[in-house]
């Protein structure tokens, strides 16, 4: 067991070093998140004046910014693995007695750490922009937890795709799922404001919607348990699916046939 922890720790630290040394891994992602925050907050904030809209538009758009950062951070896990596969380091690691699962877990944990740092950063920026959380600082913990859960689910997906595709282009293509995930949802306006029936339907089955709603509940309305629990449920289902997918792919990639 100690072996497992040491191997995982060593790999996590390595992936963190790689992330820190390649700013292009995280900078574009942070830019996009801040873009959501600044541009939409500046450009669309009058939506908040519509009758029936509760709270500030900043608190409303903040979850979009955070979820987008979460996708970037955790999607990096798969990219890191592809990188290892492509430069031959993956084989080098397989030739050591390192616990197999550590080799896959390392980049996932590093991705989650990147996600947490980014989320905290965005929350700080939002506070400077005048964010007023209805549930106080403790509410932030829920927001971070939802972001982390969503990130974990996405990390599973990205690792699974990468271990199957084994090349950067295909795994990059796989991350484009973030488009429908983020945008076919209650991204810019509340769910009840969406008029197109098809979009409303897609947004209803899109798990991201429940993450948005959970975060918004905490930020805008305070301790509303129903949306928070729905968010956690959506995460649990997603994680169950993607982590299974990831471990199946890992088994296949580590299979010696």
């Amino acid at each position: 067991m100690t072996r497992f922890f040491i191997d995982t720790w060593v790999q996590t630290v390595r992936h963190l070093l790689v992330i820190m040394r390649n700013p292009f891994i995280f900078l574009p992602n942070i830019m996009i998140s801040l873009f959501f925050l600044f541009v939409y907050q500046g450009g669309l904030s009058s939506v908040a004046n519509l009758p029936g809209f509760e709270g500030s538009y900043l608190a409303f758009i903040l979850p979009v910014s955070i979820v987008s950062a979460a996708i970037g951070g955790s999607g990096g896990a798969g990219q890191s693995l592809v990188r290892d596969l492509e430069n031959g380091y993956f084989s080098r690691l397989l030739l050591t007695p390192a616990t197999r699962i550590s080799i896959v877990l390392g980049p996932m944990i590093a991705g989650m750490i990147q996600l947490l740092v980014q989320t905290v950063l965005i929350l700080i920026v939002a506070l400077f922009l005048g964010l007023d959380s209805a549930s106080g600082i403790l509410g932030f913990v829920v927001v971070i937890a939802l972001a982390a859960g969503f990130g974990l689910a996405f990390a599973g997906y990205s690792v699974g795709v990468s271990l199957r595709a084994k090349n950067a282009q295909a795994s990059q293509a796989g991350t484009f799922i973030f488009f429908p995930l983020i945008f076919l949802s209650s991204t810019f306006v509340p769910l009840e404001f969406i008029e197109a029936e098809w979009l409303k339907w897609v947004a209803t089955i899109n798990p991201t919607t429940y993450i948005f709603e959970g975060m918004r509940a905490v930020l805008i309305e305070g301790w509303q348990w129903a949306p928070i629990l729905q968010g956690l449920l959506a995460i649990s289902i997603m994680c169950a699916l993607t982590i299974t997918f990831a471990s199946m792919s890992a088994r296949k990639a580590l299979n010696r046939d």
Binding site: L17, V18, R21, R83, G88, Y89, S91, R92
Partner: peptide
Amino acid sequence: ALQETGIDPAL
């Protein structure tokens, strides 16, 4: 030592 070196270029 395999035919292709197994090295992480960022380290």
